[in-house]
Nucleic acid binder design. Structure first.
Lengths: 154, 154
DNA sequence: CTTGATCCTGTAGCGGCTACAGGATGCACG
DNA sequence: CGTGCATCCTGTAGCCGCTACAGGATCAAG
């Protein structure tokens, strides 16, 4: 139930904030726990009460997450855009590095896409003992350097 | 019994297997724990001893990981390519779906790259109160549907 | 006052590893 | 045969960014 008369003296409960910002309730509490978000005031019973600013901040965070910024970067962005009113140059630095990462990732994905689509194209779909996909995977190339390479989830 | 005997004769310790396959020692043990990899025989003292086949399998896994397959998919691929000698069609199905995912991700990254590069380009780098990057992030668009959307790490 | 929606804290789990701690083993060399 | 030390063992906890409970407490409408 959404009380239309919400924001009584600008006191949004967490569910309302969630709806307005597009951020999951559990995630909001998580952000508070890791101190990405300041702890809000509470009702006497202990329920969180947020203001309009919180909606903006959370929406900002959500958008930045959608753009692939991680929480460390977002924390930095929030600090920069915060009370100190730091330089746009610093923000640009973060964004530029991030852009660089994105381009690298796209290039990787591109290579991968070409390899995989070429391989799949060779597939007959029949029950064959020599499957091109498995073949490609089986050609273990460079046992590449000892690495903390980590390989991110797909 | 043909070449199996040969591979049994040489018993690779885990460190050797790691070097040959390019997979981290800890990761190999992890794969064993989650049963992606069969438990190998051991020395009397309890040290793992691997054969040549294990090098192939691990290299296969590593390569598939590099191509962005997740462990569930890899497990399926291993099963398919395994004793049952299943159809190439099944393998193709997995690979095709995966290819689809890759393309979707590339498209997303492309949009993101365009938005971010356009935005960064507008940056003066000066200490300005109105930073284009922060502006873009601040325009919270659709407070999109209640979601288990999750947004993957960058 | 009762209901039931919303909220609270705390903890555990996901994937795919990585990083220890605190020991046991294997093997070359003297 | 002893010694030293590289490698190995198990087990547990941590990383990120959430998500999903359990087991209650609170709030507001009727």
């Amino acid at each position: 139930m959404a009380p239309i008369t919400a924001s009584r003296a600008l006191g949004l409960p967490i569910g309302e904030l969630s709806r307005l910002s597009g951020v999951n309730i559990e995630t909001i509490r998580y952000y508070e726990r890791i101190k990405l978000l300041a702890a809000p005031r509470r009702t006497e019973g202990g329920h969180r009460l947020y203001g309009r600013d919180d909606v903006r901040i959370l929406a900002f965070i959500r958008r930045a997450r959608e753009l692939g910024f991680n929480l460390v970067e977002i924390r930095a962005l929030l600090d920069l855009g915060g009370p100190g009113k730091a330089s746009c140059g610093d923000v640009r630095k973060i964004a530029t590095r991030h852009l660089h990462d994105i381009r690298a990732k796209m290039s990787d994905l591109g290579k991968l896409e070409r390899l995989l689509s070429r391989t799949v194209a060779r597939c007959t779909g029949k029950t064959a003992p020599d499957c091109p996909v498995l073949d490609v995977l089986d050609t273990a190339r460079t046992p590449r350097p000892r690495g903390r390479s980590g390989i991110r989830p797909s």
